[in-house]
Amino acid sequence: MQRYSQKYNGTKNIVLTVVLLLLLGVLFNSCESGPDTKTLFFAHSLPITHPVHKGILDMQKFLEEKSGGKLQIKIFPDGQLGTEREVLELLQIGSIALTKVSAASMSNFAPEYQVTSIPYLFRDSEHLFSVLEGEVGKQLLASGTEYLLRGLCFYDAGSRSFYAKDKAVNSPDDLNGMKIRVMNDQMSVEMVNTLGASATPMAYGELYTALQQNVVDGAENNIPSFVTSNHYEVCKYYTFDEHTMVPDVVVVSTKFWNLLSETEKEWLQEAADESVERQRVYWQETIKENMEVLKKAQVEFVYPDKSRFSDKSRPVLQRMMKDPKMKEVIEKILEN
Rank of each mutant, 00 (worst) to 15 (best):
L148M: 14
D173W: 03
A271Q: 08
V192N: 06
P172A: 14
Q72S: 15
V299R: 03
S171I: 02
E266N: 06
A104V: 01
F162E: 00
N29V: 13
G25V: 03
M59V: 11
V136P: 06
N290K: 06
D36V: 11
M183V: 10
Q298S: 12
T254V: 09
L294F: 03
N214D: 15
S171C: 02
S310P: 05
A168R: 10
V252C: 07
E206V: 03
I223Q: 05
A157W: 03
L268R: 00
V249W: 01
V250I: 14
Q318T: 11
T11Q: 13
E328P: 00
R85K: 14
L195D: 04
V293W: 04
Y155S: 05
V115A: 02
T39V: 15
A197H: 12
D36G: 08
E64F: 09
N9D: 13
P304K: 09
R314Q: 15
P51Q: 09
A97N: 05
V52S: 11
R308I: 14
S229R: 13
M59N: 10
F256A: 13
N336H: 09
S143D: 05
S117I: 00
S45V: 13
R123C: 05
V131Q: 05
T286R: 00
H243Y: 07
Q72F: 06
E335W: 09
E126F: 11
P324I: 09
V302H: 04
Q6F: 11
K179W: 08
E84S: 15
T239D: 01
Y163I: 04
Q284P: 01
